[in-house]
Design a protein around this nucleic acid. Structure first.
Length: 569
RNA sequence: GCGGGUGUAGUUCAAUGGUAGAACGAAAGCUUCCCAAGCUUUAGGCGAGGGUUCGAUUCCCUUCACCCGCUCCA
């Protein structure tokens, strides 16, 4: 499917518009039009109904370790700044990045040296100087270095200063070695010299892992939107728009426990807007700066957490299929150990083969993460990091005088849980199915788009664009037409329309040829069209036309609402 | 953030240093008894800002947005 076709249909029919379009648009922000808002709302309501309101806490669902309760929450977008400091977002979302002045590539400042250590050019140079250990003090061999620069260096690191201008670059090193015979020269330091052409002006440069060019100073990329609460804007008043809804659930964990009589295991669900100042919003609404999440934090006993993780992974995997995405278009991907987030002991992504991606590439719809007790403990104890043994402990910073204190102090509140039956007290583990509402909407849009052939009035085949939404999420459930605008047909059709509207979104249209009206509804994805015709006047039946098969059948006027209700729920 | 490409009507596309066209779509009317029909009529556009010029949608600069590649994606 051609993405451009979908984008223009979304614009034309009112599914999605660019935000602030009359002013030229704003990168990373999208508005939902009249049809889009119904579609997205139906998706969110399906999620809420299936996960929360419709959940039966009295029986054990297939695949679940036990029965469980579900409850909802709606927390604020702006929260106490300490929430983000303890959650890790404040530190993690302030990425320091460096750009290569030569090849223009962007690299994370804290990754640069690890990347250099694996760069082919650096490895080959280390070999030339017979360096096996990067931190070791080394003997500098100017002849071998020059030879390397002229041969292997030229091929593998073309932008390295010593390759571009060996004489000038080497002169700085010789000068420093003369002035300071005890100069501690290890490989990283030597590589810096080799990346530096004008040391007097620039100081020692860091080489680009990709091409050897010199990198800019680290610059801060802040992925959290900042704002201020209160009229006076100071460092003290700085607050953040939430980059995820999850933290609102964790900080309300105790409130929910104290107010609802829920027992572990149970889940708290929340839908809402989140904000991330993405470096590169791309691919229609797939990566937006303002987006909506549908998140569940499921609290369980640590000993059962793996089973619950599997339950939620499979449950959520099936949900997308139940709403019409075939299994073959989806991928369930378990993260590798080294890919896991700092808190997670297991994560799976549910991905969809979006048409803007290459063949066999998939984009994330939802992540199901086993977060352990990281979040609740963080909000009790303070920001946690993994220590050398791989255990979580409070991150400490050293004050003047060598005293240590927590980097970000937690709330100090007791967020543990006591099991009344066993009298055991513990910090629950958390399974987090975190879905993107806009990504799901986009996936359903992509999946719905079809072009097929349908005959026109003359019997010639014409291309028909039809959005084959699952009836449950279709923006409009049924449209009602009088076949012609006379003989009392409009009045009957309007009565039917009013009856339908009481239960779900319906559309009435009496303008133009009926074929045209059918095609319009095809593009909107309306699953059923009801037509009042001459026979209606005699036997009080109407036709119902199926969007996908184009089949028509007759039902009694009085049965229309019931017939459509059954088919769309 | 970098490099390349593209911005003309709701959509898809033309043309032009001197009044911007088409198709489809939309609206109104007539006609129409089942899949974009016909006839009549109507509305609607050069992404934004600046410069060059007698005059700029066209040339130049800046900016914004979209697409592709790089980078990033907790």
């Amino acid at each position: 499917m051609d993405m451009d076709k979908l984008v223009s249909l979304c614009k034309r029919r009112g599914f999605l518009f660019q935000s602030s379009e009359i002013y030229g648009g704003l990168n990373g922000f999208w508005d939902y039009g009249p049809l889009g808002v119904e579609l997205k709302r139906n998706i969110k309501e399906a999620w809420w109904q299936d996960m929360v309101r419709g959940h039966d806490e009295l029986v054990t669902p297939p695949g679940a370790p036990s029965a469980y309760e579900m409850t909802g929450l709606d927390s604020t977008i702006i929260m106490h700044p300490q929430v983000w400091k303890c959650s890790g977002h404040y530190d993690l979302f302030h990425d320091w990045m460096q750009t290569c002045r030569q090849c223009k590539r962007l690299v994370r400042a804290d990754h640069v040296w690890n990347m250099i250590k694996e760069a082919p050019w650096a490895l080959s140079f280390a070999e030339t100087l017979e360096v096996t250990n990067w931190g070791d003090k080394l003997r500098f061999n100017s002849l071998r270095t020059l030879q390397w620069a002229k041969n292997k260096g030229r091929k593998t690191a073309p932008n390295l200063a010593i390759v571009r201008n060996p004489e000038v670059t080497l002169s700085w090193l010789s000068e420093d070695l003369e002035n300071n015979p005890n100069l501690d020269l290890d490989l990283p330091t030597l590589l810096q010299y080799m990346a530096t052409e004008q040391k007097a002006q620039t100081g020692l440069q860091t080489p680009c892992p990709h091409c050897g060019g010199d990198l800019t100073e680290p610059r801060e990329f802040n992925l959290m939107f900042e704002t201020h609460t209160g009229a006076v804007q100071t460092e003290e008043s700085k607050t953040f728009l939430r980059p995820e809804t999850a933290q609102g659930i964790f900080v309300n964990f105790k409130n929910v426990l104290d107010s609802t009589r829920v027992k572990v295991p149970f889940g708290i669900a929340q839908m809402g807007k989140s904000f991330r100042n993405e470096i590169t919003p791309r691919n229609f609404t797939f990566r937006s700066r303002e987006f909506e999440q549908m998140e569940i934090e499921f609290f369980c006993h640590p000993s059962e957490s793996r089973q619950w993780y599997q339950y939620w992974r499979d449950r959520r995997w099936r949900w997308y299929q139940d709403l019409g995405i075939p299994e073959g278009r989806l991928r369930l991907r378990e993260h590798d150990k080294d890919e896991l987030s700092h808190y997670s002991v297991g994560t799976a992504d549910i991905e969809y083969g979006f048409p803007f991606l290459a063949e066999n590439e998939y984009g994330e719809l939802e992540g199901i993460a086993h977060r352990g007790d990281f979040d609740l403990r963080s909000h009790m104890e303070g920001k946690l990091v993994k220590n050398a043994e791989g255990c979580l402990e409070v991150e400490m910073v050293e004050e003047e005088g060598g005293k240590k204190r927590p980097k970000w102090k937690g709330s100090g509140r007791d967020l543990t849980y006591r099991d009344e039956a066993t009298n055991e007290r513990y910090t629950p583990h958390v399974i987090e199915p975190s879905a993107g509402a806009d990504r799901a909407t986009l996936a359903f849009l992509c999946e719905a788009y079809h072009e097929d052939q349908a005959p026109d009035e003359k019997g010639e085949m014409q291309t028909r664009v039809v959005m084959k939404f699952h009836p449950r999420i279709a923006p409009v459930k049924a449209a009602v037409f009088p076949l012609v605008k006379k003989d009392g047909m409009p009045e009957i059709a309007q009565d039917i329309y009013r009856g339908l509207k009481k239960k779900f979104s319906a559309f009435y249209d009496e303008k133009g040829a009926v074929g045209r009206r059918y095609r319009r509804q095809d593009e909107a994805g309306t699953p059923y069209c009801i037509t009042v015709d001459g026979q209606t006047l005699q036997d009080k039946t109407v036709t119902i036309r199926d969007r996908d098969t184009l089949e028509q059948w007759r039902v009694k006027v009085d049965d229309v609402v019931e017939e459509i209700s059954q088919r769309v729920s």
